[in-house]
């Protein structure tokens, strides 16, 4: 257990700066992902050298660089392309250039209600956020844009690589994903990944495990993600 009183003034100052930098990394994630630039996000703000990065949603964990690069990065681009092809059936005036990838979509996952803890050793950090968001995506059967409300929580481990904070383990916990004007008490679904519905084949998680449940009439409130607590070094805490 961390005891802030044992830290030097220099260490305390660095912690405050680190908190700000971790928040900025997480906000950059929101901006990259909102633009469908998941591959660019992986390049800019995710780990490159640290073993076993993970990306998790309600349905399980994608583990390791190859798996995350495909599911979170490459697949997002493929889905944008497939969605543009579908949208062009309704809007044939759209050309199929890369400049039009993401047309008709709108994704915002604002970050609120943060709890951030920096390890006393300054090597890792943990954070969680609420995200009241909205996603407009191309949906079957008409292949037109449909607006949704989406509320999620994030639990994220960060690690310092070459002096910069990077995303190491990201876990997205979806509470509801429901069309605007419809009740999440009556209709909700797991969050989509990236832009658009799933017009391409989706890989199964490397670890298939129901880590969190979307809202249902019979679902008790879920005490997840676990809140970060002050800690000295990563070996004495948990991983998201």
């Amino acid at each position: 257990m961390s005891d802030n009183a044992e830290l030097t003034t220099e260490q305390k100052l660095q912690k405050v700066l680190d908190i700000h930098e971790v928040q900025n990394v997480m906000s950059r994630h929101a901006y990259y992902h909102g633009l469908g630039k998941n591959a660019e996000e992986l390049e800019a703000i995710w780990v490159k050298e640290t073993p076993e990065p993970t990306f998790a949603q309600n349905q399980g964990y994608f583990v390791g660089y190859e798996s995350i690069n495909y599911y979170y990065g490459e697949l997002c681009r493929k889905m944008q392309r497939a969605n543009l092809d579908l949208l062009r059936k309704n809007y044939p005036e759209l050309d199929e250039s890369d400049d039009n990838l993401g047309v008709g979509t709108l994704i915002m996952h604002p970050l609120t209600t943060s709890i951030i803890e920096i390890a006393d050793d300054g090597k890792t950090a943990k954070g969680m956020w609420y995200s009241p968001g909205q996603v407009t995506e191309i949906m079957p059967p008409d292949h037109k844009p449909i607006a949704h409300w989406i509320w999620e929580k994030y639990g994220v481990d960060f690690i310092r690589e070459n002096g910069l904070w990077k995303i190491w383990h990201m876990h997205v916990y979806t509470d509801f994903f429901t069309p605007v004007g419809e009740s999440w008490a009556d209709l909700t679904a797991d969050a989509p990944m990236g832009v658009g519905g799933p017009p391409v084949e989706m890989p199964r998680p490397d670890i298939e495990e129901e880590t969190y449940k979307v809202y249902s009439h019979t679902q008790l409130p879920q005490d997840l993600p676990r809140m970060p607590e002050p800690y000295r070094t990563f070996s004495e805490t948990f991983s998201y």
């Binding site: 609120t112 209600t113 609420y130 509320w151 509470d175 019979t218 008790l220 409130p221």
Partner: peptide
Amino acid sequence: PEVPGLMTEHAAT
């Protein structure tokens, strides 16, 4: 009471 079907989230912004 914590019963199935109850859900609340209040974001602090």
